[in-house]
Design a protein around this nucleic acid. Structure first.
Lengths: 329, 329
DNA sequence: TATTGTTATAAAACCGGTTACAAGAGCCAA
DNA sequence: TTGGCTCTTGTAACCGGTTTTATAACAATA
């Protein structure tokens, strides 16, 4: 319960504080035997270094900045979870985090995490010029040290799931076409349809603006236009929820008349029983933090594409053709 | 730019480190003259104590927990800003924060901030029993140490603004009636109408569920039902945005045909030109942190009701009666 | 006047880590 | 055998604060 200090670990292992510290920080010049002994004791005692003391002992303030692209997104669920993850990983390493307002990338930072990078983002170049190490959440084509979710694979999995259930007239509820994530998900949708030799109908790709209301309006419009479809693969949970509401307002039952899938797996999705693609946001944050730490320690940098999981719930069901079902009778 | 330490302050003031520390922590037994001298030097040098060192020197981990009521709300804009504020204030005091999952209020915390307390909330009692100091965001009738926004006064101001513009058939777009904030805003609406001897029409009080889509649907329903109104005072920006969308979809122009006000002043409100009531969320967080610190140091506890501001933008305009305007011609 | 208390401050110990430096062990060449 | 080298580990200083203890100056009391 009460905190265990490095001193106690040292006493238990029969070595000095310094050795413990060297082991834990991966310094070389430690006997492999001693190393495993120490790690064992650390494990047994459940020792966790005090972040405050660590920060103090390593000279310098050790601050890393979190740079968001738009103020508007600040505080959305996605960024909240990401921040939690980054903070958890970085604070355990003795770093404190600090939100960077706007484009004023401070120069006295030890590192920066860029959130929501887009294609013609000027920030990576700025940071390179200032020789500040950084890692990115979002894909970069020219540089390393980025983490991204496998958007393409995620939507592909959702579409395959729908196809396996017998659906063929599948609509895609897309976000604004500016974001990379949006484009990748759309491509995933296309890939899924094509792999089953299904036709991609232009009228069944709708813009839902990544919001619940946007999804609602898009689906209402489609129904009013008399379009036929038996499933909707949305590019976000919010849009999917809006779609469900619109279907219900139009007298369609989910999933019996229309199946719906989302993307993100927000808490609300589980509550509403929405089949969706889980984005491991927390994991993305952890990886981003690790990439930055890697880069700051001078190791060769890499990037990471984290996988998604399809969470099958109650908003999808097998396709029931009215004709078919009447024949069966 | 580089950090200024307590040692430098001490040298500049011609006293010892200990004295600086005593002054900054409000310990007594310091000569008033010395105190002002030290404070002057601190100000001049722009000295800010290092949180890490502070945390280390005060024994114990010094963790305070942030307890949310519902997982769902986690990460919403509101809670994001609140967390920023709490963290800022508490970390400068050497405390680190930790999110409390569910109801597992850990016992080894120095203090707890309860977010979103409601009337029959069991948590205050639990904490009292465990003798853990706490402060609450949201009103408590039985206890002290809470901070809340003046919901009543905020909506009252919005309604008065509309009345001053000549409106009389004013609708209220309310949240779910369970929350305290919702009830207080509804009461503010009533008070505003009554103070101008205006009739409160039951059919003009709608439930919008605090979401954009909820607001949209409620307004569509009202229009379809043929209800007459020239202004809508919503209990949240999101609902107000939904209302604006619904009005536009029905061919009503905002603000010429219908005026709309929101509540919260989210970034999106400024962008959309929505007249709204600003909730000083950040300020609420700071105050909550201070109330907790107060309580932990054993001072007599108090509570705070922070004021709102009406942000007048382009979604409200003077009432134009068609009859009137034709007469004027 | 000698003794005791008060008050204000300086000095030093400490918090829990990291790291520069010193030192002992083992090995090899001279 | 001895000096020098590498490998490994202990020792101690230090980071920037807080807090306990010691001390000096002065006032109050006997």
């Amino acid at each position: 319960m009460s905190k265990v200090t490095i001193q106690e670990v040292a006493r238990n292992a029969g070595v000095s504080k310094g050795t413990i510290s060297r082991v834990l920080n991966g310094r070389d010049g430690v006997n492999p035997e001693t190393r495993t002994l120490v790690l064992g004791v650390v494990e047994r005692l459940g020792y966790v270094p005090d972040p405050g003391a660590r920060q103090l002992a390593r000279r310098g303030r050790h601050v890393i900045g979190l740079a968001l692209d738009e103020d508007e997104r600040r505080g959305s669920t996605y960024y909240g979870i990401l921040r939690d993850a980054l903070e958890e990983r970085l604070s355990s390493e003795g770093y404190s985090t600090q939100i960077q307002r706007e484009n004023q990338l401070a120069t006295d930072l030890d590192g920066v995490i860029l959130l929501g990078v887009h294609l013609d983002d000027p920030r990576p170049m700025q940071l390179e010029r200032a020789k500040t190490p950084f890692a990115m959440v979002g894909r970069s084509l020219e540089r390393q040290s980025w983490v991204d979710v496998d958007n393409h694979g995620g939507l592909l999995a959702a579409v395959r799931h729908l196809i396996n259930l017998g659906h063929s007239k599948i609509a895609h509820l897309s976000g604004a076409h500016t974001g990379q994530a949006s484009v990748q998900r759309l491509e995933g949708f296309r890939a899924g349809m094509q792999s089953a030799q299904l036709e991609i109908i232009k009228n069944l790709i709708w813009d839902g603006d990544f919001t619940e209301l946007g999804g609602y309006r898009a689906v209402r419009r489609a129904i009013k236009a008399g379009l036929e479809f038996s499933a909707i693969a949305a590019a976000s949970d919010e849009m999917a929820m809006g779609a469900v509401a619109a279907l219900q307002d139009s007298g369609r039952r989910v999933p019996w008349d229309v199946s719906v899938t989302g993307f993100d797996d927000l808490p609300v999705a589980a509550k509403a029983g929405l089949t969706t693609v889980r984005q491991p946001i927390f994991e993305v944050g952890i990886r981003a933090a690790e990439l930055l730490l890697e880069r700051m320690s001078g190791k060769p940098s890499s990037s990471a594409l984290v996988a998604t999981n399809l969470m099958v719930r109650q908003s999808t069901a097998a396709f029931l053709d009215e004709l078919n079902s009447s024949v069966l009778k």
